[in-house]
């Protein structure tokens, strides 16, 4: 079971997730402190570890639109958050898969802050409202990267095979 810790609207941009002024910070180990830093309450909850790993952000359409900055993914991955949204912007979704951030495409999701969600292979059960919502499966091309443990491991495997 995982709790929804925040509910956000449509078109949440990478500038909201990880403002440009922190882009000089690049290492995945250093980016988590700046997650949603202009939303000061949420940012302080994350920084003070009040939000347990596996907690859920429910976004609207086009989550992660804008920049290709990978910090917008590593900052969320650092807190082991799960992102559920009706749809993601292409680069953000790909970065999420490459870095192992759990992104769940759920076109009809209805959930509020505080709701408890249960994930099965093909649906999300909102335990608070009792409603069930279908999950869109990831294309095979992307699933292969997840199965390999992310793009670094996947590339390494191909590199070693090529060099053998």
């Amino acid at each position: 079971m995982a709790q929804v810790v925040i509910k956000l609207g449509d078109d949440i941009s990478t500038d909201v997730i990880y403002p440009g002024r922190y882009m000089a910070t690049v290492l995945p180990s250093e980016t988590p402190q700046y997650a949603f830093s202009d939303m000061t309450d949420f940012n302080s909850k994350l920084k003070s570890k009040q939000i347990p790993a596996g907690s859920v952000i429910v976004g609207g359409k086009n989550f992660g639109c804008g920049s290709s900055r990978e910090q917008a993914v590593s900052t969320l991955k650092g807190h082991e958050l799960v992102i559920v949204a009706p749809g993601f912007a292409r680069i953000f979704l790909q970065n999420g898969i490459n870095l192992g951030l759990r992104t769940v495409v759920c076109p009809t999701i209805e959930a509020s802050e505080g709701d408890d969600l249960e994930f099965t292979n093909d649906e999300i059960v909102n335990k608070t409202s009792g409603k069930r919502f279908a999950i869109e499966p990831l294309p095979k091309a992307r699933q292969a990267i997840i199965d390999a443990g992310g793009l670094i491991a996947y590339t390494r495997k191909l590199l070693v095979a090529k060099s053998a």
Binding site: R69, L99, L151, I152
Partner: peptide, 8 residues
Amino acid sequence: IGATEMAS
């Protein structure tokens, strides 16, 4: 693309 994809 993202930075990890560029590394690839």
